[in-house]
């Protein structure tokens, strides 16, 4: 089953859901992204690995339309969107983000209002998308929190009073509250206790299997990528140096750097 699923993107020649082409971005002298292209197919998990500073988060921020590149384009295969999403203005980006893109940050402070209720954090997403019925907000927030395996009796507690793992579940609930077309995960389990990390990964895996949510998962932990990803992209110095099916990349890494990475891990 899982082998079949992993093969699916290659066997079924579907259109990519997400296509980023030729992205470059510099911050002063730092070239954070250097001609990066990436495709994500419907229902797959794309893992992005690479050392610190290799540009992973920058790429994810672009996927989330938080930032624009110096050059490059971004296409999402959804109705009524322009050929290049970077042409959208701030308002349109916010709407698209609210409705179609979910994100979980490593640092919960980036994704959550720590002093508002957890359910409110999830509800905010629905409010931005235009939901105005209080009962529906409650209901949908609860459903999303349940799907993230968050303990419902605590749904109105503020994230600041919750453990790191619970905070990530709130972020996850917020991200999936509107059934996003793609879920972006930037080191969602880094910094968590190993056992907690495993539980959060289980939740992600379950969600992936049940709903076939398309995911882009950034991590510098090869173990995490290996358990989760169908395909893998290896980044270094703002470039993609290797790309392929996860099994291939892990069993038979082509690039020297990837070989070192994989062997150091195994």
């Amino acid at each position: 089953m899982s082998a079949l699923m992993k093969e699916a993107p290659r066997l079924v020649r579907t259109q990519p859901l997400m296509e980023l082409s030729g992205l470059s971005k510099s911050y002063g002298d730092v070239r954070a992204l250097d001609d990066v292209s990436a495709r994500v197919y419907p229902g797959e998990v794309l893992g992005i690995v690479g050392e610190s500073g290799s540009g992973k988060s920058t790429l994810l921020r672009m996927m989330n339309l938080e930032e624009s590149p110096d050059t490059g384009s971004y296409r999402l295969d959804l109705p009524e969107l322009p050929e290049d999403l970077f042409a959208l203005d701030r308002f349109e980006r916010r709407m698209l983000r609210a409705r179609r893109i979910g994100i979980v940050y490593q640092n919960p402070h980036l994704g959550l209002l720590m002093k508002h209720s957890s359910s409110g954090n999830v509800a905010e997403r629905l409010l931005v998308a235009g939901e105005r019925r209080f009962a529906v907000l409650r209901e949908k927030a609860q459903v999303a929190l349940e799907a993230s395996e968050f303990p419902i009796p605590r749904m109105d507690a503020p994230p600041i009073e919750l453990s790191g793992g619970m905070q990530q579940r709130v972020q996850l609930a917020k991200a999936i509250a509107l059934e996003p077309a793609v879920l972006l995960l930037d080191e969602p389990t880094t910094g968590l206790d190993v056992s907690v990390q495993a539980l959060v990964l289980d939740t992600l895996k379950r969600l992936q299997q049940e709903r076939r949510i398309t995911m882009v998962l950034v991590s510098h932990d090869l173990g995490v990528i290996r358990t989760m990803a169908d395909r893998v992209m290896v980044m270094r110095h703002g470039r993609v140096i290797e790309e392929g099916l996860a099994d291939q990349v892990f069993q038979d890494p082509q690039h020297n750097y990837t070989q070192q990475l994989v062997h150091a891990k195994l």
Binding site: R90, F91, R94, A98, L113, H116, S117, S119, G120, A123, E124, L127, V128, R132, F134, L137, D156
Partner: peptide, 17 residues
């Protein structure tokens, strides 16, 4: 300028809760 009133609504949600 962006008609970005999600936080405003969230404040009402929080009071209801």
């Amino acid at each position: 300028a962006d008609a970005d009133y999600g936080r405003m609504w969230l404040q009402l949600y929080e009071q209801m809760v």
